[in-house]
Design a protein around this nucleic acid. Structure first.
Lengths: 199, 199
DNA sequence: CCATTCACACAACAAGCGTTACGGTTATGT
DNA sequence: ACATAACCGTAACGCTTGTTGTGTGAATGG
């Protein structure tokens, strides 16, 4: 049953949608050409038409994952320390949906580490995240809610903390329920607030 | 050329050695029966004799990874906060060897997340790590080098911080050279020392 | 209105995977 | 010394994977 209309862009979005569903259902390692094709009721021939090689589809999936994560609804919070807190809370797997997203994200690390190109993409994404955090941290410092001193380092530290907490929570959800995660994050932020500036 | 001696234990160690080399060379996803067999100059028939299914070999590999990590030489440090710092430094990818180990470790998360049994194993390992950290933290509290308050939470937070820093450093080694990692860790510890106890 | 190009199904391919069955050799127990 | 079991190489099986080539109907442009 051939298609009557060949809108290229719309078709690409359909593929993205299928990739997204496969990712959510079978994780990153279950992302095969046939799985995606089946998900959208097509064949592998369609996919190779849009993505010359598997690698390209993988890169697209990572990019998609990044944009969907960025586009999801965010917590609103007052400028300053609450904004930093909100941004970090947005990272943590506090809801089933966030857990699923983080699971896919973590499962992508394996594939990404094995490929220098994909690895560089990840590095850039995390760098962007740090940059965003840095701005929020700097704002909090201006308000006097955080002690002065290297905002870049504080952002990097905070991101590391959140990332590590994600991993812990994914492997041991029973030991890290949502309120525990929040508690640990608040303790960390308390430490940040109290830390003296280093020379 | 058939073997003349069938020492079971020694042979198992040979397999472990081969698994280790394959892991270091091709990562966790490159751990195939044929690769391990080739590494020790044998065939897949040998492996299925010691490990009925791939799953068992995977579990063995994770256990091996854990024990090798635990058995590596550790930093010595004075009891108290320096011991906590040393334990966390031991986790970070500060040397090429540690980087390789952490890379394998992170690449195992994908496989582990997909299998509930393996996932439980990881959870238990991290719980053990937290317990070890908790003792060190409690000792530092007794010495007055850390403020009193939930040592379990402090240990969990510190482990999360280290874990996240590992991930960051693996993806962006240029942005996280060894001295930067150390610097970030020290800033984190400074925050811990200064944080007031929460009710 | 015809020629060309695009979009895609269909089918086959080779490679790699885990698993299994089968034999022959070596150790073990009686 | 002989039966039995353990050990492990050999080879094949079935399955899944990414990739490739061919064919066909729809869109397009001159």
């Amino acid at each position: 049953m051939p298609r009557t209309k060949g809108d290229h862009e719309a078709r690409r979005r359909e593929v993205s949608e299928a990739v997204w569903r496969v990712l959510a259902a079978h994780g990153f390692d279950g992302l095969t050409l046939r799985a995606v094709a089946a998900e959208m009721g097509a064949t592998t021939g369609l996919l190779t038409h849009y993505f010359p090689a598997k690698r390209d589809l993988l890169a697209h999936a990572l990019d998609l994952l990044d944009r969907r994560s960025a586009a999801r609804p965010r917590r609103v919070a007052a400028r300053g320390l609450p904004a930093v807190r909100a941004a970090l809370l947005d990272i943590l797997p506090l809801t089933p949906a966030a857990t699923a997203g983080n699971r896919v994200w973590v499962s992508s690390w394996d594939t990404a580490l094995a490929d220098p190109g994909l690895s560089a993409g990840h590095a850039e994404r995390y760098a962007r995240g740090r940059e965003k955090l840095r701005e929020l941290v700097a704002a909090a410092q201006e308000l006097g809610e955080l002690p002065p001193g290297d905002p870049e380092g504080i952002a990097a530290g905070a991101q590391a903390f959140a990332l590590g907490l994600v991993v812990q929570a994914l492997f041991d959800p029973a030991a890290f329920p949502p309120d525990r995660q929040t508690e640990l994050l608040d303790a960390y932020l308390a430490g940040l607030s109290a830390a003296p500036a280093r020379p």
